Simulated assay, not measured.
Amino acid sequence: MSAPPPWPIGFKTILVRAVLYVLFIGAIVQGAYLEALYLPSVRFTELGFTELTQTLVLFTCCAMLIYIRQVLKVWPTVTLLLLAFVASSLVREQDYFLDTYVAENTWKVLVALIILPSLFWVVKQRQRFLEEFAHYSNTFAFGLFTAGVLTTYIFSRLYGRTIMWQAVLDDQYVRIFKDVAEEVVELLGYSLILIATLELLLLARRIYRARKISA
C-alpha cells in the first residue's frame, strides 16, 4: 500500500469546499439571470455583470498565482506558465477597452509581451518544469484547470457560434441569444479555472508548511 502524501486533506474539508463551490456556481448563474432581468441596457456587454465578473475572476486568479510563486515558492516554473496563460486571458477580456481607448490590436501586443518571455523561461528551465509538472499533473487542481480551459476556449466558442443559434432559432434568431450562450459558458469556464487556482493555492500552502516542518 502506497504511503499518503505529506500534505493530506480531510474528507470534511473536501465536503465543505464542494458545498462552497456549488454555491459559487449557483451565484454566478443567478447573477447572469439578474443581469438579464434588471440591466437591459448593458446586459452581456463589456459593462454587464457577466463580463465584469470574468475580469474579476481572472484578476483574482493572477493574484493567487503570484502569491503561490513569489511567496510560497511552490512549483515556480509551472505557476509562471499558468500565470502567463491567465494574465493573457485577462488582457484578452479587455480588448474592447484597449482597442477603443488605446489603439487597435493593443491587446495582442500585450499578450505577446506576456507569453513570449514566459515561454522562453519555461523552455530554458524545461527540466525543472517537467519535474514540477509531474507533481502538478496528478492533482485535483490540474484536472479542474484543464476542464476550465476546455470549457472556456473550446466548448464556449463552438456552443456560441452564430450558425448554431441560427439553426436553433431559425427566423427568430437574435444575436443576444448567441451572446448569452457564449458569455455565460465562458464565465463558467473561468470559474472552474478560479476554483482550480484556489485548490492549487491551498495545496501549495500545505506543501509550504510540510517543507517548513521537515526543515
Rank of each mutant, 00 (worst) to 15 (best):
L15S: 06
L187N: 07
E35S: 11
A141W: 01
T53S: 15
E182N: 15
L144A: 05
A196Q: 08
V185L: 15
Y153W: 09
S2H: 12
G143T: 12
R209H: 10
L47S: 14
L58Y: 05
A103V: 10
D171F: 02
E131H: 07
Q30S: 11
T60Y: 14
V174W: 14
L72R: 02
L81I: 04
E182W: 07
Q125M: 12
Y208I: 00
V168A: 13
R128T: 07
C62R: 02
V74G: 00
P76E: 09
I9V: 15
I28W: 11
T79W: 00
I213C: 04
A215V: 04
T162W: 12
Y136N: 02
K124N: 11
M164Y: 12
V184F: 04
I115M: 13
L119W: 11
R205Y: 03
F97R: 14
A87P: 04
G31E: 14
I25S: 08
I68N: 08
E51C: 02
F133I: 01
A36E: 06
I114C: 05
V16A: 14
E182K: 15
G10S: 15
L98V: 01
E199M: 10
N138F: 12
I213T: 13
I68K: 04
Y38H: 14
A32R: 03
V22D: 09
T79P: 01
L47V: 05
I9C: 09
G160I: 01
W107K: 05
V91G: 07
F155G: 01
L200M: 12
E131T: 08
R43V: 06
Y159V: 07
T162C: 08
G148A: 00
R175L: 09
E132Q: 05
I163V: 02
Y96W: 09
Y101T: 02
Q127A: 12
I195S: 10
A36N: 06
A112W: 10
K108V: 12
I213M: 10
L192T: 00
P8E: 02
W7G: 06
W75H: 04
Y38E: 13
L72C: 00
G189F: 01
T106Q: 03
L119K: 07
L150A: 08
Y67D: 08
W75F: 03
V174Q: 15
